[in-house]
Amino acid sequence: MADAVSLVDLKFEYRKGRPVLDIPSMRVAAGERVFLFGPSGSGKTTLLGLMAGVLRTTVGQVQILGQDLVKMSPSQRDAFRGSHVGYIFQLFNLIPYLTVEENITLSCRLSPERRKRLGGKSLEAAARDVAARLGIDGLLKESVTALSVGQQQRVAAARALIGTPELVVADEPTSSLDHDHRERFIELLFEATKAAGSTLIFVSHDRTLQPLFDRAIALPEINRASKLEAAA
């Protein structure tokens, strides 16, 4: 089985001559739960953007599930992300004018590929199942603005997980939660990704969470660009 993520000689810069990322190699095996950490500004979110195919580089390889995003057209990358990747933001994950259920099913409604992955289940049933797993099935008809931050993050996780994408990327999803909620959220996320068979890349600067994961990757250590900057 191909690696979930395989980066080779990846380089990225927002402005010419100011590289943010220069990663000779990074691999994440399928089904792995990886803790990716680094200080603020070390390029974590940029790396996630590249892995999700939102940002684009022309140098190196970004292989996700065996396919090279660098070689894809922008619309192919959008379609690929829509069907194979679940993404959780640090905060404000939800569209404010949709209900919890509409937010969860939005990815399936936007992407026909993702919709097919439900395997004939109705959108409502799929949303109910994934919400039940995350303990928010009582909130499906609520407006998202009425939810607590912890509940909002669970809705975001449900949306990332619906349709069982192969890769789930979470960008500091727990940084705004208190300690108890943090552990509980990660537990639920693990259960749900395990049930979906998804690979999880979890980004944080909070090293106390590290022991919960299979493996940890320190971005500054694999990123030559940050060393360059430190040297300069």
């Binding site: 999700a52 939102v54 922008p74 619309s75 959008d78 379609a79 992300r81 829509g82 069907s83 990747v85 993404y87 933001f89 404000f92 994950n93 939800l94 569209i95 404010p96 939005l106 990815s107 936007l110 992407s111 993702r114 949306r159």
Partner: peptide
């Protein structure tokens, strides 16, 4: 902007 970023993240392309 946040809304647009969310839509992009769940697979909405520029056309959408």
């Amino acid at each position: 902007r946040r809304e647009m970023a969310i839509l992009r993240a769940i697979g909405a392309g520029p056309m959408k």
